[in-house]
């Protein structure tokens, strides 16, 4: 959609064109969490992931000027995920050569990284983005709701049956439907807003 395309372009151009602190901070604010979840999804442990996040950010900072938007070929997210992958990969390769004795764990990670092709990176990029944006949206809006409706909604994500939810929270099924639908409406609106603001 043209609108989406437009937003993405302006956000990135702002980053690429101006090397100022402000827009970099913006970028970090928006994308830090996303980069983190992608790193984690590549099979990296929590303690290492924090370090790697910093590495990736540095690398992005350096190579952003080289990024060229090509519609349909390489979206920003895919590019970002490729940067993440190569950073993670390099990190583990260094570790594994440096520490010959204790590298079993790293080797396994390396091996699984080797198997990730570009289309798969694409998939991960998309999947993590959806999850990231949706979760962020939930973080943003969940305080607007009463504890009851928040809890019912969170439970409803994993429990399809309204009856089961009604029994669990001791309310009527009608109430469950109302809670779900109200919260969902707000959540979807927030997801939509975030998605277009962060530039898909």
């Amino acid at each position: 959609m043209s609108q989406e395309y437009h937003t993405r372009q302006t956000l990135l151009y702002k980053l690429i064109d101006s090397n100022d602190e402000k827009s970099w901070d913006d970028f970090v604010k928006y994308y830090e969490g996303y980069i983190y979840v992608v790193i984690r999804s590549l099979g990296v442990k929590q303690d290492v992931a924090e370090d790697l996040l910093q590495d990736v950010l540095v690398k992005v900072w350096k190579s952003l000027p080289n990024y060229e938007y090509r519609e349909g070929v390489c979206t920003f997210r895919t590019w970002l995920c490729l940067v993440i992958k190569s950073t993670v990969y390099n990190f583990f390769r260094k570790k594994s050569t440096r520490n010959d004795n204790k590298n079993v764990d790293y080797d396994a990670t390396l091996h699984s990284l080797d198997n990730i092709t570009e289309p798969e990176i694409n998939k991960i990029a998309e999947l993590e983005w959806k999850s990231y944006i949706s979760n962020m949206a939930w973080e943003n809006v969940k305080d607007e709701f009463s504890e009851q409706s928040r809890k019912i909604f969170e439970a409803s994500v994993h429990e399809e049956s309204n009856q089961a939810l009604a029994d669990k929270f001791d309310v009527s099924t009608g109430a469950v439907r109302v809670y779900k639908s109200r919260v969902k409406k707000v959540l979807l609106r927030e997801i939509s807003r975030l998605n277009s603001e962060l530039g898909g």
């Binding site: 959609m1 999850s131 949706s134 949206a137 994500v157």
Partner: peptide
């Protein structure tokens, strides 16, 4: 982010293109 629930991604799919 550690507390993120991947199930939430389903909601993203419910966004109609028109809604965006």
């Amino acid at each position: 982010e550690e507390g993120f629930d991947k199930k939430f991604a389903d909601f993203f799919d419910e966004l109609d293109e028109l809604d965006e």
